[in-house]
Structure formats: C-alpha cells, structure tokens
Amino acid sequence: MTKRIIAILFSVLLIVSVAVIPASAAGESVGYSYRFDDNANLLSDAEEQALNNTLYEVCAKCNCNIVFFTANDLYGATFTHTGTAQDYTQRYYETCCGVNTDGVVVGLVLSDEDGDRQVLVYGSGKCVKRLSDEESEDIRTDAINNHNPDSYGYYEFLNAIALGVKEAVPPHVKWYMLPFSFLIGFVIAMIILRILKSQLKSVKMERGAVNYVRPGSMNVTAARDTYLYSTVSRTARPKESSSSGGSSHSSGGGSYSGGGSKF
C-alpha cells in the first residue's frame, strides 16, 4: 500500500511537472510576430528601433503576437470600425493578425471619438485568459502615472507598457493557488472519506415509528393554508464592464480582454 501511494505521488509530481515546466519554459515565439506602427510619428527612428527590440523580447517571452500602434485619430483607417477607440484598436489587431488569434494589441490614440488621448491594451485568443481586465488596467495605470509621456516622452511610455505586457502575459498562475489547490484537494478527500466511513456505521436510533403506523389509520380532519404576507428582495444584475476582471468581451469581431484609459 505504502509503495503504491509513493508511486502515485511521484506520478502526481510528474503530472504537475508536465503541466508547469513547459508553460514556464515557453519562451520561443513559434509562428508569432511583433510589429510597431508609429502612424502618429511620435518616436524617433532610434526610439522606434529600441522599442522594436523590446517587442521582440516581449513576443518571445509571451509566445503570442504583439501589435503596438500609434494614431493621431480614428479617421483614415483602411478597415471598417464603429468609430470608437476600442473598436478601432481591435479591428486594427484583426487586420494585422486575424480574428481570435493569440496576441496583445496596444493602441495609443491621440484623439479618440471624444477628442481625448487614450491608451488601450487588449488580449486576444489565449491571451484573453492570461491578460485579465485588472492586469490591463494595472499596466495602463502604471504607465500613465509613472511614465507619463508629457514628462518622459512617448518612447518611455510605450516601453513601460511593453515591459508590463512582458511581465503579465506569459502563462502564469499566482503562487497562492498552489496551497489553495491542495486545500481544495483536502476538502474533496474528506468528503470522499466521510462517505466511505459512513459505510462502517450501521447502528443508530430509529427516528420515529413509521414502520408501525396502522395501515389506513391516518385521517386529516382539518386543513387550512392561510396566506400571511410577502416580501420582495432585489439584487442588482451584474453588468458587463470593460474594467471588470477576467471577463472577455467583444464589440463585433473576436473576443478580447482589457480596456482603455484616457489621460
């Protein structure tokens, strides 16, 4: 029995290794590409080259497509869109890489549908799960607060976003999920063992005397069901929001996670 259990435990470790090690080692971008389209001409050639180098590393680390672009406004696109910065960014990605392909798109629009400057970070395909809405917001917030282009320039701003993507998007499971997984496993074990243990207990007091009711002896002589009062409780329905964590949403094409921030 002990040997069998040790063998099974080794098998479990093997399963975890098989699942985790390749995911951790995923560093090659087989079949994936990266691109930076500076349509708004915000970066110098040297900055553009430096950012491309960063995107190359991001693409390899994240094992997905990486698309960065800048745009002065939402006009003059070669693709159709609904006129919002969100839809513009998502259609831009689909034009470059296709619908629902694995990738991250970062758009910097200087004048969106409201005339505001906006940065948008979306995940597509398997990156919908890897880049949650919260993580997208964290990347945008960090860049806006700590690498604001008005103070540090657009290269610094976009590079900070690229590094944020490089940190967040590779396959990852938060560290505390490991003990949490085994805690759930322990709860499952206790439920199963409780069922198995109940097989060993067959002695208990009878609850009543249902086996000794005289057949046909029961008679209901009075029955009244009286309505008293009612209460109504109300709970708000969950709304689909671009800032809600972990959800995927679509505005016509594929599904995306993430969102945009005006600044």
């Binding site: 479990v12 975890v16 499971v173 085994f182 496993g185 074990a189």
Partner: peptide, 18 residues
C-alpha cells in the same frame, strides 16, 4: 488515502489552472 486524494486532486486542480 486522504493524503493520496489530496495530492492527486490538488495536482489536477493546479495543473488545470496552468
């Protein structure tokens, strides 16, 4: 058996997350 089920179920859940 408790240890075994905990290990297997925990590993499967964690692997599932990955």
């Amino acid at each position: 058996v408790a240890a075994l089920i905990t290990a297997v179920a925990g590993a499967v859940i964690y692997a599932g997350m990955w």
